[in-house]
């Protein structure tokens, strides 16, 4: 006979208290009433309907949930929304800009991903693009080998890697054979 009880006896059964969390998302200030156990990823997807940020593993093992927090790329599944109080978050929905004529101006990486067919199913794509924006902000990648290494935190199960590297190296003006 085997019994599976995950909780030890002394832990009491109760719900956590909610609090007000203020986040600036894609330039817009958002206030949410959240319990501390809501991850930034779930806050975006389930509470703000910003489903462009994807859940691919929920454990920091795939990179699909990559967003930019104050310009730095992170896995939004491994941080609590409440921990990002006051932070400025950019998601895939916030990368393109809309000009005065209401024309959508894609981020150069978004455009390059389309031109190079740097995706297939599209599920890892927002994470790849946000990660690549972070990569550019970091300024560490000088060769395509650097891009390969520094984009390895974003798994693409469809296997679009060569095209992803082509798209990023074009935007970063890195020689394709480096």
């Amino acid at each position: 006979m085997q019994s599976t009880s995950i909780l030890s006896a002394e832990v009491t059964v109760a719900l956590p208290e909610k609090s007000l969390v203020t986040l600036t998302i894609n330039g817009e200030k958002k206030q949410l009433e959240l319990a501390p156990w809501t991850t930034l990823l779930d806050a975006l997807r389930e509470y703000l309907d910003l489903t462009g940020t994807k859940k691919g593993c929920d454990h920091g093992q795939c990179g699909a949930c990559t967003v930019l927090v104050d310009g730095k790329r992170i896995n939004s599944c491994l941080t609590l929304a409440v921990m990002k109080e006051g932070a400025s978050i950019t998601t895939i929905e916030g990368l393109a800009t809309v000009d005065e004529n209401a024309t959508v101006q894609l981020h150069p990486l978004q455009d390059a991903f389309i031109q190079h067919d740097a995706y297939q199913c599209g599920y890892c794509t927002p994470g790849q693009i946000c990660s690549a924006v972070g990569l550019m902000n970091e300024g560490r990648a000088k060769t395509t080998d650097d891009i390969r290494e520094l984009m390895s935190g974003n798994i693409c199960r469809c296997g679009a890697y060569p095209h992803i590297v082509d798209a990023i190296s074009e935007v970063m003006q890195i020689d394709k054979n480096s």
């Binding site: 730095k72 896995n75 972070g134 520094l150 935190g153």
Partner: peptide, 9 residues
């Protein structure tokens, strides 16, 4: 170790 995203956190 890890990935750039994780190292940023």
């Amino acid at each position: 170790g890890a990935s750039p995203q994780l190292r940023n956190m």
